[in-house]
Nucleic acid binder design. Structure first.
Length: 571
RNA sequence: UGGGGAUUGGUGUAACGGUAGCACGACUGACUCUGACUCAGUUAGUCUAGGUUCGAAUCCUAGAUCCCCAACCA
């Protein structure tokens, strides 16, 4: 019956069974053999010491998606075993980001620190059984004894009597010793080729206040000692993590076996790498502290709060994560995949509007002075239910500087002296003259309009090649528009000359602020976070820096621009 | 150097000894009141060398390349 739990395969139709990724295959194998009694229970286990980024989104979507697909559960667990780096601020932001992405942990929000008491008991048990011991070696000496590829050397404290270790461990807990003076170590194998098995440290002394347990503890478990047991305690079936933890797996398995507790299955997948992007916590923190960005939520940051501010939707993020798939191959995904996912969604859902980023004045010589008319514009051609709106038209308009060329290149469909184009939803206009300033720069276009083309169609059936957007100068509202480009100059930010680092590849033009943009008046009602397609330009969203008097828009992503491509090729 | 992983078009991902497929991109064209969207078509791949087999991306042997580990971080 549960032969194939994929809904698409349930029907009798000839829809081919979509292929499974390697994690799903493992899960279905477990379901066949009954290893977990058909249960699927995943979790997302962040450390609250930084903001979540797109790489985490991949993990969240994977874990939550698996739980959903197989009718299982999904936990949120904070791995808060290091009080010196972790803060409540991060817990809050992580919670918000996971929720935003749409992953629902249904109240199963846990903390490794919830298990500190249990972990402590288990540690004593291992000491009593001769499987752990208190070690007085200094950090340097521990490293020295751990040895090199040929093997390590046993600590002189390894054979200390169980009672002595137990006593010392209790006194460590009681706070009798200064930081760094002693550790609790698992007694495994100092000759193992896997360094993680050479008597790994389980507890270290840290006289630090923990964001949740306060001053209760002055010994804290190492991640390796806490992680597997936390999964075990929560009954996690599939403990999914990134590749670098693969070599830790034997250690988790050793702990779980030594303790005789329930064993989850760890599965490792390749973390996300994106072109033109850095995705390591260390670097993200550096970008913030060195002020290369305005903060964690700078729209150029790959943090979830950053892309959210940029205008990304949870749906687009999920679509992206689904599309990139999951495997053990450590590749690099093109950022354009992310942008495509956003375009795809916003094309369907974002209302259209007209906005002029770099205005050029247009005067219609044969249009009556002082006259205004309201023209109908379609809100979203992809969504008939979105309706229409009115846009004011008058004698003086603004168009995009880029939509006029005094000496147009071949195949330029837009305005040029003597050429006629359609002003979207309005009239056909012909350019009959240009006005220049002293420097010879075109500052105004003189045009005529054809009253018979009202609405944008010519009764005589004549065609125009180009349609351009515009706003009425007197009716337009002011806005600041922020354009973003790749944050780094090279697909791989690490591609730098000897002696430099990824910062050398920071794109100095990744942010361009246009203070004098003009918007159609309907946009005056736009609220922070709302998204629009500015026709022919891209998708934009209202930034939180907006004031009632002045809107600020972020460009989330451009539209595909075939003309830009043609022009670039011509050069 | 010791150990753990990985390698299929430009990118990502299938094919589980039997026709190398799909998606995105790129390129052509059609359509178009957004040079958008949509649609049609084209393009291009099994890391290398041997072997097993009627048949190999898949199995075997050898090699190459890339990533990761050797914190009292996670």
């Amino acid at each position: 019956m549960a032969k194939n739990s994929d809904p698409a395969a349930d029907g009798k139709g000839d829809t081919p069974t979509p292929s499974l990724n390697f994690v799903q295959e493992i899960i279905e194998e477990h379901n066949r053999t009954g290893r977990f009694g058909g249960r699927v229970h995943t979790r997302f286990p962040p450390e609250p010491n930084g903001y979540l980024h797109i790489g985490h989104a991949k993990s969240i979507c994977l874990n939550y998606g698996l739980a959903q697909k197989y009718g299982g559960k999904f936990n949120l667990r904070f791995d808060d075993t290091n009080p010196t780096t972790e803060e409540q601020e991060y817990v809050d932001s992580i919670r918000e980001d996971v929720r935003w992405l749409g992953a629902n942990w249904e109240g199963r929000e846990f903390y490794a620190s919830d298990y500190f008491d249990q972990l402590y008991e288990w540690a004593e048990k291992l000491i009593r059984e001769g499987k752990a011991y208190v070690c007085d070696l200094s950090g340097d000496d521990i490293a020295k004894y751990r040895g090199d590829t040929r093997g390590g050397k046993e600590s002189p404290y390894r054979s200390r009597p169980v009672e002595e270790s137990l006593d010392l461990f209790r006194r460590m807990k009681a706070g009798e010793f200064p930081e760094g003076t002693r550790t609790l170590r698992a007694k495994i194998d100092m000759t193992s080729p896997n360094f993680h098995l050479r008597d790994p440290i389980m507890y270290r002394i840290m006289h630090a206040k923990h964001h949740r347990t306060g001053d209760k503890w002055c010994i804290y478990p190492m991640y390796d000692w806490a992680h597997g047991e936390s999964d075990s305690i929560e009954g996690i079936t599939h403990s999914i993590c990134t590749l670098e933890f693969e070599i830790h797996r034997p250690l988790y398995e050793w702990y779980v076996q030594a303790l005789g507790i329930y064993a989850p299955q760890q599965i490792e997948f390749a973390r996300l790498n994106l072109t033109y992007t850095v995705l390591s916590k260390r670097r993200l923190i550096q970008l913030v502290t060195e002020k290369h960005v305005s903060g964690w939520d700078d729209p150029r940051m790959p943090t979830l709060c950053g892309v959210r501010r940029r205008g990304y939707t949870p749906e687009a993020m999920r679509k992206f994560c689904e599309r990139i798939g999951v495997s053990k191959f450590n590749g690099m995904i093109e950022v354009s995949w992310l942008e495509d996912a956003l375009r795809e969604e916003l094309n369907r859902n974002a209302p259209r509007a007209m906005a002029v980023l770099r205005p050029l004045r247009v005067v219609i010589e044969n249009y009556p002075e002082g006259q205004t008319e309201e023209l109908d514009a379609v809100n979203n051609p992809e969504d008939p239910t979105a309706g229409t709106r009115k846009v004011p038209f008058s004698r003086v308009l603004s168009i995009e500087e880029d939509d006029f060329r005094e000496n147009p290149p071949k195949d330029f469909f837009r305005l040029a002296p003597g050429k006629e184009v359609r002003f979207r939803w309005a009239y056909f206009l012909k350019c009959v003259g240009v006005v220049k300033d002293d420097a010879g720069k075109v500052i105004e276009l003189r045009c005529t309009y054809d009253p018979a083309t009202r609405g944008g169609d010519a009764p005589d059936g004549r065609k125009v090649k180009g349609t351009i957007h515009w706003v009425s100068a007197d009716h337009a509202i002011d806005a600041e528009v922020r354009l973003y480009d790749h944050f780094f100059l090279k697909p791989n930010p690490d591609d730098v000359p000897e002696g430099q680092d990824y910062r050398a590849n920071l794109n100095p033009n990744s942010l361009e602020v246009l203070p004098g943009a003009k918007l159609e008046p309907s946009l005056a009602a736009a609220t922070v976070g709302s998204r629009y397609q500015f026709e022919r330009l891209g998708y934009f969203c209202v930034d939180k820096d907006s004031n009632p008097g002045k809107l600020v828009f972020n460009r989330s992503v451009t539209l595909r621009d075939t003309w830009a491509k043609i022009e670039k090729k011509g050069k």
